[in-house]
Simulated assay, not measured.
Amino acid sequence: MDLTITRTGDAGPDVMLVHGWAMHGGIFGGLVDALAMRCRVHVVDLPGHGRTSAFVPGDLDPARCAAAIAAATPPATWVGWSLGGLVSMHGALAHAGHVRGLVAIAASPRFVTADDWPHGVPASVFAGFAAGLEANFQHAIERFLALETLGSPHAQDELRALRARVFEHGDPSREALREGLDILDREDVRARLPGLAVPSCWIAGRRDRIVPPAAMQWAAEASPRGRFVELPTGHAPFLSEADAVATQVFAVIDETAAP
């Protein structure tokens, strides 16, 4: 599996950042700056996204992605946003000796609703985006970006930031986008969270229209060493609250270093 991973900083504990659907690692610019004061920050572009243009069907499988990232990077605290949060959850569950701590940002253990899970969006939402990819590729991505910022007090600024970044390294792979939507539709790691051995922080956006804060609170309570934090944002808290997110990452790093 091809991956592009960049590093910022030469000293301190290692942190791995994993982005969400249709984006790439460049979206974490402000958070990287905040973290690099104390950490060596590794930022991945997932297959078919950003500078990792190569994509083979199956490459976005969260377990496969997590294994590939772990093989290419030193032990670290993993920070995953949205789809990247699912990758990071699989990393923390399967590679606890390598993933020292987990910070999940607006990343639910299950993104779609079910009879026993009201904390998500209807499956029709992702089906609609999948249909949109076939009809009008860029318009479908624009709709998703708008949904990510909907409800945020800084919605216009955040939407401009997402729009400026999403095509910065060319179009993401259509095949990767289809596979990513399918993963968001079907993935469910709720039953595995009680086995999460590492410290974890679950950061929700109070006005998030994709991942309700209740999903993140549930995940924190299901995780033996979990902690829930809510910020006054939409689906991308690190865009307007980079320092607040960095503070939570530092807290997890400190917890991993404690006896």
Score class of each variant (00 low, 15 high):
Ala155Gly: 06
Val211Phe: 03
Gln217His: 11
Arg163Ser: 10
Asp185Ile: 03
Glu148Met: 13
Ser152Asn: 07
Arg163Leu: 06
Ala197Val: 04
Phe137Pro: 12
Arg192Ala: 15
Met216Arg: 03
Gly180Cys: 02
Ala130Arg: 13
Ala146His: 09
Gly170Cys: 06
Leu145Lys: 00
Asn136Cys: 13
Glu221Cys: 08
Val189Ser: 15
Leu162His: 00
Leu193Met: 07
Val211Gly: 05
Arg186Thr: 15
Arg165Thr: 13
Ala197Glu: 14
Ala127Glu: 15
Leu159Tyr: 00
Ala176Cys: 09
Ile203Trp: 05
Phe144Leu: 08
Pro172Lys: 01
Ala127Ser: 14
Ala123Thr: 14
Val198Ser: 07
Pro153Val: 01
Trp218Pro: 14
Ala219Tyr: 01
Ala214Asp: 14
Phe144Asn: 07
Phe167Tyr: 14
Ser173Val: 01
Gly128Leu: 11
Ser152His: 01
Ala155Asp: 12
Gly132Ser: 05
Ala155Trp: 01
Thr149Leu: 03
Ala146Thr: 11
Ala155Glu: 12
Gln138Trp: 06
Ile203Arg: 03
Val198Asn: 10
Phe144Gly: 12
Leu177Arg: 06
Trp218Gln: 12
Gly120Asp: 10
Ala161Tyr: 00
Ala176Met: 09
Phe144Gln: 07
Pro172Phe: 00
Glu187Arg: 09
Ala214Trp: 01
Arg209His: 09
Glu179Ser: 09
Val166Leu: 02
Pro199Val: 04
Leu193Thr: 04
Ala140Ile: 03
Ala214Ser: 14
Phe126Pro: 07
Gly128Gln: 10
Val189Gly: 06
Ala220Lys: 01
Val211Ala: 08
Gly151Asp: 10
Arg160Ala: 15
Trp202Met: 13
Ala191Thr: 13
Pro122Thr: 09
Gly205Ile: 04
Ala191Arg: 13
Gln138Val: 10
Gln217Ile: 02
His139Ser: 15
Ile183Arg: 02
Pro194Thr: 11
Ala161Cys: 09
Phe137Val: 05
Arg165Glu: 15
Arg165Ser: 15
Phe137Glu: 12
Glu168Tyr: 00
Gln156Ser: 15
Leu145Val: 00
Ser152Cys: 06
Ile203Glu: 10
Gly205Met: 09
Gly170Val: 06
Gly205Tyr: 00
Val189Tyr: 04
Phe137Leu: 13
Glu148Ser: 13
Glu148Phe: 00
Ala161Val: 00
Ala155Cys: 06
Phe167Cys: 02
Gly132Val: 07
Asp171Phe: 00
Phe126Asn: 09
Val189Glu: 12
Ala155Asn: 05
Gly170Glu: 10
Phe137Gln: 11
Pro122Ile: 10
Asp157His: 07
Arg186Tyr: 02
Pro118Ala: 14
Ala131His: 08
Val189Met: 12
Pro212Lys: 07
Val189Arg: 13
Ala204His: 02
Glu142Cys: 04
Val211Gln: 03
Gly205Leu: 07
Glu179Met: 03
Pro213Cys: 11
Arg163Pro: 04
Glu158Thr: 02
Leu133Val: 08
Leu145Thr: 00
Phe137Ala: 10
